Computed example of a mutant assay.
Amino acid sequence: MAKILIVEDTPANMRLLIVILEKAGHRLLLAPVASEGILIAQQEQPDLILMDVQLPGMNGLEATRLLKADPVTQGIPVIAITAFAMSGDKEYFINAGCDGYLAKPIRYKELLAAVENALKK
């Protein structure tokens, strides 16, 4: 299956993503902060990045902009994960360079559908 980088600072959210994605057969890379996620993405070239928006220090959208500006990582799809999903947010996240977004709380079927969709592109 796919190699997926999860950048998430909340342990409960990280555990949930791990359980769902490992059960679906994906290989996971984990980072609790954006700067570590960027380094892992550059070194490991994952097939997909799940990026929490609200991270300590550099937020997920800043990290996404850096990833999309780097020739090494610009082709990796990024799905933003946010607790602050409101109407108009999709355009905001797409304009920030994200290839999609998911609202928290994470829903099993929505997560798997978004992952499969992003990997097909």
Results as ranks from 00 to 15, higher is better:
E36R: 09
K90G: 00
F84T: 00
Q54R: 13
I81M: 13
A85C: 10
A24D: 15
G25H: 12
G60Q: 05
V53C: 10
Q42A: 14
P77Y: 01
A31T: 00
N95Y: 05
H26L: 09
I40E: 03
A83G: 15
N59R: 09
L29F: 11
M51Y: 04
E36V: 15
F84E: 07
I40F: 03
Y101F: 15
L48H: 03
L39P: 01
D89H: 12
A83E: 12
A41G: 01
G97T: 07
L55D: 00
K90S: 07
G60A: 07
A83N: 10
P77L: 02
R65D: 09
L28F: 10
L50N: 00
T64H: 05
P71F: 12
L67G: 03
V72C: 04
G57F: 01
D99Q: 10
A83K: 10
F84W: 14
C98G: 07
M51C: 03
A24C: 08
I94G: 04
P32Y: 07
I106C: 05
E91N: 11
P105F: 04
A83D: 12
A103K: 05
H26T: 05
A83R: 10
V33I: 13
H26F: 09
Q43H: 08
Q54V: 11
P46F: 11
P46A: 14
V72P: 00
P105T: 02
N95A: 15
M86N: 07
G60T: 08
V53A: 06
T73P: 08
A96P: 03
Q42D: 09
C98S: 08
G88N: 04
S35P: 00
N59I: 08
V72W: 05
Q43R: 15
S35N: 12
G25S: 11
A103R: 04
M86K: 11
Q43P: 00
A83M: 11
G37M: 07
E36I: 15
G100H: 10
